[in-house]
Design a binder for these strands. Structure first.
Length: 205
DNA sequence: CCCTGATTCGC
DNA sequence: GCGAATCAGG
């Protein structure tokens, strides 16, 4: 495989999006992550400018820089170019979902892109307490305290993909703990995801 | 061990 | 220019 214009374009785009080298390599196919990284450097876009510092970013505690920004013209909006969605800070006090009281007439097809799902209504089928063994339920609740709270993009083939919270709000993430080999979930969540039919009392409601 | 990007250097 | 091997790290 060679670096055709199209492939380079894909590389640039994904790199700008903050995708990892291995993810990009997987997407492109025929190249390793090393190849991707090498290309990235040769293209001179190694520093994810405008991007963001992830992981353990070094705190610029004492900056020798005296005059950073002259701040000229009046109120300039955020120069932030790439508002990459990053794991939001855990909020201790999750907002109660706005009551679906009065369906607003206007459809606001605009920048109000908060909820991807109309807040309030039909949530994805969540395992209800009365159809899961108490032990499994307990372990799940325990585990969810330790969950890594990954975002969608942070999931890999070895992270638990169990969704936690309400997709309609910011209070939503994926478990992210190590998944069982060959399974999409961690041990605790496998326990509630896969159950022998015999155990599934149709505790019909 | 899983993963990340950075660098080197023979090709 | 390319990318495997290696390095350095979370």
């Amino acid at each position: 495989m060679s670096w055709t214009d199209e492939r380079v374009e894909t590389l640039k785009r994904m790199w700008a999006e903050g995708q990892s080298a291995s993810q990009i390599a997987k997407e492109l196919g025929g190249v390793t992550r090393n190849a991707v990284i090498g290309k990235v450097h040769r293209l001179g876009l190694s520093n994810r400018v405008g991007g963001k510092d992830e992981e353990e970013a070094e705190a610029p505690a004492a900056r020798p820089e005296p005059a950073p920004q002259p701040a000229p013209v009046a109120a300039a909006p955020r120069p932030e170019p790439a508002p990459e969605p990053v794991a939001a800070a855990p909020r201790p006090a999750p907002e109660p979902r706005p009551a679906p009281a009065a369906p607003v007439a206007n459809v606001t097809p605009l920048p109000v892109r908060k909820p991807l799902v109309p807040a309030g209504q039909p949530l994805p089928p969540q395992p209800s307490a009365n159809e899961i063994s108490p032990e499994a339920l307990a372990s799940v609740r325990e585990v969810e305290k330790r969950a890594r709270r990954l975002t969608l993009m942070e999931l890999t083939e070895r992270t638990c993909k169990w969704p936690i919270g309400d997709p309609a709000t910011d209070d939503f993430w994926f478990c992210g703990l190590p998944s069982l080999p060959g399974k999409p979930y961690c041990e605790a969540h496998v326990g509630v995801a896969f159950q022998p039919m015999s155990a599934r009392r149709d505790r019909r409601r």
